Amino acid sequence: MSQLHANCVQIGAHALLLRGPSGSGKSSISLRLIDAGGCLISDDRTDLVARDGRLIATAPSTIAGLCEVRGIGIVRGLPIAAEGDVRVLIDLVADATQVERMPHCTAEEICGITVPRWTLCATDRALDAKIRVALAVATGEMRLEA
């Protein structure tokens, strides 16, 4: 088992990890994805384990069902999922110049499972849509042109 400093959100049948330092927008972005129909798996820290060739995410028991909403406090009652089949990792950066315009597909190995990884700017107005596209590419629902 491994633990990442990352949020995890379920969208449809698959989950994604949002990784970044404290204050990078992980919880705010998670809230927007949840507001659009997603479910929270974990806020701030995510436990990960390989199971049947898949990377499965859960919340540590001490924070399960909780989400820190900066400016409001720690809340309970958001739509949640007990676990998720992680298909993509999004690294959040604060500066749009850190995001390549046409990046090569990269991946990261977590618990022996290779997961596609993209770097996106946390303040990008199209971030929610880009995250959904990245998840669709990672699950084969969309494809990248060479």
Rank of each mutant, 00 (worst) to 15 (best):
S28P: 02
A6V: 03
G140Y: 10
V49G: 04
A138R: 07
L31S: 04
I113P: 01
L40E: 02
R125F: 01
A81S: 14
Q10D: 07
V115T: 10
A136K: 14
I34M: 01
V9D: 01
D124H: 04
H14D: 09
Q10Y: 05
R101T: 04
I11N: 06
I74V: 13
T46I: 09
D124A: 09
Q10G: 03
R32W: 03
L55K: 03
P60D: 14
G112V: 06
Q3S: 10
G20E: 04
A59C: 14
C105K: 14
L4R: 15
N7P: 06
I113C: 03
T46W: 13
R125C: 02
L66E: 04
L135G: 06
V115C: 11
L78A: 08
G25K: 04
V49M: 15
S61T: 13
V137R: 15
S28K: 12
L33G: 00
L31F: 05
T97V: 11
E141P: 05
M1K: 13
S28W: 01
G23R: 11
R125I: 00
D85M: 10
S28L: 10
Q98C: 08
T46H: 12
Q10F: 04
D124P: 03
Q10S: 09
G65P: 12
G73R: 14
I29Q: 10
Q98L: 14
L120T: 03
M142I: 04
G23E: 14
T97K: 15
